Simulated assay, not measured.
Amino acid sequence: MWFLVAVFFVATLGFLVVWWLVAKMKQPRSLRDWVLIGLPTASVLLLWMLGWTVIPHFFGRPNSAGAAGDMFGSITSLFSGLAFVGLIVTLVLQRSELSLQRKELSETREEFQRQRFEARYFSTLNLLNQHIRNMRLPSDEESRDLRGSAVLEYFASELPNEQDPDLTLGAHGEMQIAQYLQLYDILFEPNLGPYFRLMYNCVRQIENSGASEEEKEAYSKILRAQLSSPEVKLLMFNCSTSWGEEFKPWVEKYRLLKHLPREFKEHNPWLSSGFRHLEE
């Protein structure tokens, strides 16, 4: 009689615990969740009920209430041990979960930094292209003023070659640079000054982005693909002067003069020899 009452009490208590757990869960449970909740509860109830039949079979029925309580001491010890093991497993799982969360957080932070870099980089690249479109060079003749990329083409056409008859024979690069700087101060600076500074900022952002070398190369190719032949010529001259000495190592690293016209390189062998990637 007392056995049936105890079984009913424990079964009722187990049902109430499961019902309370389910009520606390806001989202609907799947079959797997019900199994994970119900299987341990049923296992505990089954093991408890077996204790009433298996233990007395080997050790005989208890003669007092104290002996009946002691009969389940082994089961209590078993569950205490299992609870300790469960605690250790929980700590291990939490540690693994925290490790995964830190990894995801790191990846999220890297992705955010990459997106922020790309936003700044392409914004600066857009400013560079916008500056080119807004370039304007007044004309002294009756023809229209030069605008946009036509200004860069005109500047490039004014660059002195080594074979220029106006240069002293054998003077080579020194005279070329001196003549370029003179043209820069008189004619080029209002347009080319902001132009080169914007380009320098584009490359500096790539260099300081924290991206891998392969990614940096990919970003630099976007810039390099937009450089026209006149722009490459002007960049070579600028990086051969004191104005571009800080920019030159990055021009070398990212091979920004790669598409320098072959004829122009042949007409300016002294200046071209100052850039290693042009000799490859």
Rank of each mutant, 00 (worst) to 15 (best):
F84S: 12
L82D: 04
V92H: 04
P56K: 01
A67V: 01
S106R: 11
S77G: 05
L91K: 11
S106M: 11
V92K: 01
F84H: 06
R61E: 15
R95Y: 15
F59L: 10
Q94M: 11
I75Q: 12
V54P: 05
G86A: 14
P62A: 00
A65D: 12
A65G: 04
E107F: 04
V54T: 03
F72G: 06
G51F: 05
Q94T: 12
I55R: 00
S99Q: 08
Q94D: 09
T108E: 14
T53I: 08
F59R: 12
K103D: 12
S80G: 07
S77M: 07
G73S: 13
M49E: 07
S96A: 12
A65M: 07
R61P: 04
L91Y: 14
S64C: 02
I55T: 07
F72R: 02
L93S: 13
I75N: 03
S96T: 10
G69E: 10
F84T: 09
L46W: 02
L45W: 05
W52H: 15
W48K: 07
W52Q: 15
G66V: 08
W48P: 06
R61M: 09
E104K: 09
F59V: 14
L87R: 05
S106E: 15
T108V: 02
F59P: 01
I88N: 06
L46H: 02
W48V: 12
E107Q: 14
T108H: 03
L100H: 00
V44W: 02
I55F: 01
L105K: 10
Q101W: 00
W48Y: 15
L50S: 13
K103E: 13
E104A: 10
S74K: 12
T53F: 06
T90W: 14
L98H: 09
F79G: 00
L87Y: 13
L47I: 06
S64R: 03
N63A: 09
A83T: 08
L50N: 13
M71A: 10
E97D: 10
K103S: 14
R102L: 06
I88M: 12
R95N: 12
L82G: 00
S96W: 14
R61T: 15
T90Y: 13
V92N: 05
L100R: 11
V44I: 12
S64P: 05
I75A: 07
F79R: 01
V92Q: 07
I55A: 07
A67I: 02
L50C: 11
L100I: 04
T53Q: 06
V54N: 00
G66K: 05
P56T: 03
L91S: 11
L100D: 06
L100N: 05
S80M: 08
R61C: 00
S106C: 08
S77T: 10
L46T: 08
